[in-house]
Nucleic acid binder design. Structure first.
Lengths: 254, 254
DNA sequence: AAATACAATTTCGCATAGTGAAACTGGGAG
DNA sequence: CTCCCAGTTTCACTATGCGAAATTGTATTT
């Protein structure tokens, strides 16, 4: 069946165990991991044993958490992502000016994971945290990513009809306005309003997404279209120049 | 030979590929990975193929880098490490007061990896970056870690005579002064002077290390012993209280 | 205490996934 | 053109990782 001689299954399964962890979890039991990964209990025992040996997981009682080696890998990964340095200042500035949460997200399997956020100075509300996951469908973040994703890679996700349609919309928005905004009913979350734009990071081989978000009260549809969206777009065009990367719209052709 | 039925070898090998990446690398070729991991070229082809499929690696030409999935895992790992929040303010304060680089490191395989640094405000020099690795032997960071490590875990590293002796010294220093300082000739690096203290993070299941470092000119042996070491110790006792974790010295008994 | 109900681990026989050696490919360099 | 090296593919073998089921362990209830 799984007849890809090149694909190391055990490795993929082990990594899926690591991917099972969410920031909102305060440790996971084996059975929770079984549930999330769909792997058999025996397999989980073997994989977690291995990951513990290597320091990627650590155990307290029968709860597992990501361990020191995961943290170490984390640091190397983040520090190696060179454009994060350059994004630092302008994104903080954008957060301050718009009084929204500015975020950067990458694709992780079928959803988007926030890898960095910038909060406006002296704002107290509760915001999305780094490490949070957002679905691909019906979110500005996910759609912003899809708008930047090449045909080939999109096809590899074997998307359903709905997603294909959504991506088409996102494309159109990106081309017309320079940003993507999933509006109204379609939004997966009614408590957050957001706008996004893809960024092609040559480091990573596929697009990432930057975006601005806040509650619908603070960030109305009108403000997004007239003010915040354009500011995001301009900030990112600047960033694209500085990093010498391809422009977001060039990706549409790929 | 490798007769541990529970240990998933392929997973370990795959992770060793990820661990091969250093922040100073600007992408790695297959042959470099072969060299660093000691695995056969054929194996590397298969493992990197898998890791690319999953987004943990990305390829530019024939250079590999850590990919988006690695970044995503990174964010979850860092955000899940709860005591980092609490350490934030006091460690920045410590950096400002001592005008040293304050660092936090975890064990990763046989060496220590910096996972977070705090630089003094308005200091311009070049400092160690997050993601850097420091050897276990002959470094204040490594020795601080060993001083906090339990007998059992230390034994599992099957250390040589030299390391056992160094650890004994570190223990003694920690008990006497509340910090560990590898001095003079013994230091692995003559360009950095540092002092450290272990911290037992219940999250991670094994100690981590906090430390202060700078050039020997800025941070003399005398200053470490009289001023910076004690300040580090006090800052961390504070942190231990706040996190409700065990005190560093309690670990000596384990 | 005994009984119940899960959670986690170990056992076990089997199919195959992953292995290294060696052959092959491809693309610079001279 | 041909040499050389990096990377890939092929191949036959066997150790490896697999799930089902049995076993042990650990709370919870009666």
């Amino acid at each position: 069946m799984m007849t890809d001689r090149k694909f190391a299954n055990t490795l993929a399964r082990g990594l899926s165990v690591l991917r099972a962890f969410r920031i909102s979890d305060d440790g996971l039991s084996h059975s929770q991991i079984v549930e999330r990964t769909g792997l058999s209990p025996a397999t989980i025992t073997r994989l977690t044993y291995t990951l513990k040996e290597l320091g990627y997981l650590s155990q307290n009682g029968n709860l597992l958490r990501l361990g020191p080696s995961a943290l170490a890998l984390a640091s190397v990964a983040q520090t190696s992502t060179s454009f994060l340095d350059l994004a630092e200042a302008p994104m903080q500035e954008l957060a301050n000016q718009t009084q929204t949460l500015v975020l950067m997200a990458v694709r992780d399997g079928g959803s988007m994971t926030l890898v960095r956020t910038w909060r406006p100075r002296n704002a107290g509300s509760i915001w999305l945290e780094t490490g949070n996951r957002v679905p691909m469908a019906r979110s500005s973040t996910g759609q912003g990513f899809l708008a930047g994703l090449s045909e080939g890679r999109f096809a590899a996700m074997d998307p359903d009809e709905e997603l294909i349609q959504q991506r088409k919309d996102a494309h159109a928005q990106l081309a017309a306005q320079g940003f993507v905004f999933v509006q109204g009913e379609a939004r997966f979350s009614q408590t957050i309003n957001a706008v996004s734009r893809p960024f092609f990071a040559s480091d990573l081989g596929e697009p990432v997404v930057f975006g601005c978000g806040a509650t619908p009260a603070e960030l109305t549809d009108e403000r997004i279209l007239a003010e915040v969206g354009p500011m995001l777009r301009d900030a990112m065009r600047d960033l694209e120049l500085k990093t010498g990367g391809r422009r977001a719209l060039d990706q549409l052709r790929t």
